[in-house]
Structure formats: structure tokens, C-alpha cells
């Protein structure tokens, strides 16, 4: 018959071992934060940055963030078919709409392509390792920059 106490003792020992190694990793982690952890945290960080930028443009997204994070692809897909086949060009769920709000600008006022590293689309897609197909074809900056609008 199994010796429960022995088992418990073994488990505790193994757990302690595992915990210790975990702590080692954790202790080591801040040291390499510049590389690995920096990136690990980057999703959260640049998210915050983007949200600020976004608010700067005055307004909020077409749906709440909770919804957009899960369903933006469906909205874009749906809109894409509507536009392509029916000529419906409402801007609410259009990719152009996304670009207009979420594209960042450089100091000189020019746009940074939205799929550049660290930019709105790319940062999360890169983090989640999901390819963005949109920008194989679509423009990565809004058509007209605010400065050059007639």
C-alpha cells in the first residue's frame, strides 16, 4: 500500500525544488529585461501609449475595446465584402477608418506606417504572432495627412 506521508513529503520537496527554480528565473528575469521582458511587457506598454494617442485624436473607437480586441477582424472582413461587392463605403468599420485614428505621426508630422514595428497593428499582431494580410495590398497610412489637407 502507498505511503501517503512519504508521498506528501516527496511532493513538498519537488514543489520546493520547482519553486526555487521558478524564483531563480524570476530573479534573473529583471536582469535581461532589456530584451526579453521588455518585449513581454511591450504589449501592455505600447497599448497604453496608443490609447493616449488615440484619445488625443478626440473620440473613442467604433466599439468598446473589449469587443474590438476580439472581433476587429470580423468587422473588417465584413466591411471588406460589403465595400468590394456592394460599393457600401461607410467608414464605421472600414480599414481606412482604423488607419485614420490609429496611425501615429513622426515629429515632422508625417505618418508612420501602421504596420511598422511597434505601431498599432503590428505590435499586437507581432506579439501574438499573427500575420496581417491587409497591408499586403492596402495602404499603411491615411490617404491625406492632416497637415496637407487642402
Amino acid at each position: 500500500m502507498l505511503n501517503i506521508r512519504l508521498w506528501v513529503a516527496r511532493l513538498v520537496m519537488m514543489g520546493a525544488l520547482l519553486g526555487a527554480s521558478g524564483l531563480t528565473i524570476a530573479a534573473e528575469a529583471p536582469c535581461k529585461s532589456a530584451v526579453d521582458r521588455g518585449n513581454a511587457a511591450s504589449a501592455g506598454d505600447c497599448q497604453a501609449a496608443k490609447e493616449k494617442r488615440f484619445e488625443g485624436r478626440g473620440g473613442k473607437c467604433v466599439e468598446d475595446e473589449h469587443f474590438m480586441r476580439r472581433n476587429h477582424m470580423n468587422l473588417i472582413l465584413h466591411q471588406r465584402d460589403e465595400t468590394m461587392h456592394k460599393g457600401i463605403r461607410t467608414s464605421k468599420y472600414s480599414l481606412k477608418g482604423c488607419l485614420e485614428c490609429h496611425t501615429a505621426t513622426r515629429a515632422d508630422g508625417s505618418y508612420i506606417p501602421i504596420n511598422d514595428p511597434g505601431q498599432f497593428c503590428e505590435s499586437c499582431h507581432h506579439f501574438a504572432s499573427v500575420k496581417i494580410d491587409c497591408f499586403e495590398c492596402h495602404a499603411t497610412t491615411p490617404a491625406v495627412s492632416p497637415a496637407s489637407k487642402p
Partner: peptide
């Protein structure tokens, strides 16, 4: 069918690994 927020899921698991809970 029903997407979840995979960015948050990944943050959660990375957090578990680095003992920095998200």
C-alpha cells in the same frame, strides 16, 4: 467562431512564467 483576447491570454501566461501576474 468566438475569438478571445489572445494578446491578454499571452500576457497572462508570460506573466505566470515571470511571476508578474496579469
Amino acid at each position: 467562431l468566438m475569438h478571445t483576447d489572445i494578446v491578454a491570454v499571452k500576457s497572462f501566461f508570460l506573466g505566470l512564467m515571470y511571476f508578474e501576474w496579469r
